[in-house]
Design a protein around this nucleic acid. Structure first.
Lengths: 230, 230
DNA sequence: ATAATTTCAGACCATTTGGTCTGAAATAGA
DNA sequence: TCTATTTCAGACCAAATGGTCTGAAATTAT
């Protein structure tokens, strides 16, 4: 059985040659090793792709960084593109998660404040993810658009309604909800995606705790005051 | 004389073999043709690099789009990297220009409103430039950092002072000027750099005049209210 | 032990691609 | 017209790189 086959085998698969049935324990051990190696490769790929882009990154480079041979890498991922897409898929999950937290029951000001903080933490703790996502979207998301479009659209549409409700209740200044969401994304991701520019200008990055706090409270000031009802 | 030599020749260059001195008119015509071709190539390069990145774009592709042969392209630009850097250099000028307009004499609210509009127009009218700039900065600006760092730092430092003055005069809410600048950049560029995402979510782009207006007034609402003194 | 299967390494291949070489057309000065 | 110079095209090259092939080591079940 090759690791490359994606779906888990169904438990009982009818017509099987009556052969070795590996013990559950061994299978688990194997799985764990296998998964660990996959994870290592995915990690190296994320880091390399985010630095040099899909085309700028070479398989040799990634294999070297993951400390596996090129052949071995191709044993786990059948092509460069599959590897790249795998990285993107993991990333999309992570990226979308924070937004799901928005619910009508929350106090909007608190909800937005939390969202800004979480996204800013994401920029600090996952800059490679942020940048790779940015790169992919910027180039038209040729390999992610189909998977991005629908879930993103649905999710945002949902949250738009939440925001609109808040506005209707007078809890938020009347702004077009779309643009509020865009502003939140843009301002928070900026610190990861334009890190070198931020560093060139301010001399600091989010890894500096003081700068992180300063950034957080500045964004809160600007955006929260921007949307607070008056 | 090869076009490739960069600096304009000094008018009188002492020890010259007493050879043909081309007429000014002819030189001009040549220059014009030459410059036009360079510009065509730079255009194609910008468009292609911004779509596929430095490594993803091929010289053949660019040459094809510029409707010149590869050899001809290499006659004007000695290497792919030089072409790329040339594109970046032009871009940097364009990118920095709007910020220079900030002066203490202005009314801050008006100044910021104008800046948002101009940057948003830039996103609408020069999306390729915006994206290429973003890509380069995101990857650490390996080929632009030296040229970016100093002028950007100086310019921003200057504008920071202007903003701080406004704050001290009570004309602006007390926000860390750096972050105001970052927020302005981030929110306006977002509509170019994340165009496909914006389109996936909102179904429209800045090219739609209605959407442009809506975006502009939303950003004005959020940011201007965010920084208006209270 | 041993047979089956999974995991992996090294040599190798085919294509892409940035860049060069040679020389020919086009242009311009005399 | 004749000569020098610029501009450009086509064939060609060398390196990089995504990917394969063969077979050997590890691992696992019996």
């Amino acid at each position: 059985m090759s690791v490359i086959r994606k779906g888990k085998e169904t438990a009982s698969e009818g017509k099987r040659k009556p052969q070795r049935v590996p013990s559950a324990a061994a299978l688990n051990r194997r799985m764990r090793n296998s998964e660990k190696k996959r994870a290592t490769i995915l990690d190296a790929a994320l880091s390399t792709f985010s630095k040099y882009g899909l085309h700028g990154a070479s398989i040799d480079q990634i294999a070297l960084q993951a400390d596996v041979s090129k052949t071995n890498l191709f044993y786990y991922f059948s092509s460069k593109e599959e590897l790249y897409v795998s990285v993107l898929r993991e990333l999309l999950d992570l990226w979308l998660k924070p937004l799901r937290a928005f619910t009508v029951e929350q106090d909007p000001i608190e909800a937005i404040r939390d969202y800004v903080r979480v996204k800013l933490e994401f920029s600090r703790d996952h800059p490679a993810e942020s940048r790779l996502f940015c790169m992919e979207v910027m180039q038209g998301a040729p390999l992610m658009l189909t998977e991005l479009q629908q879930p993103l659209h649905d999710l945002v549409e949902n949250k738009i309604e939440v925001i609109q409700t808040w506005i209707d209740q007078g809890k938020l200044a009347p702004v077009e909800p779309y643009h509020l969401v865009f502003s939140l994304w843009a301002t928070t991701q900026h610190y990861a995606d334009f890190r070198v520019q931020v560093e060139a200008v301010a001399g600091k990055t989010l890894e500096d705790p003081g700068f992180f706090q300063e950034t957080l409270s500045s964004l809160e000031t600007i955006i929260l005051n921007g949307v607070r009802p008056r």
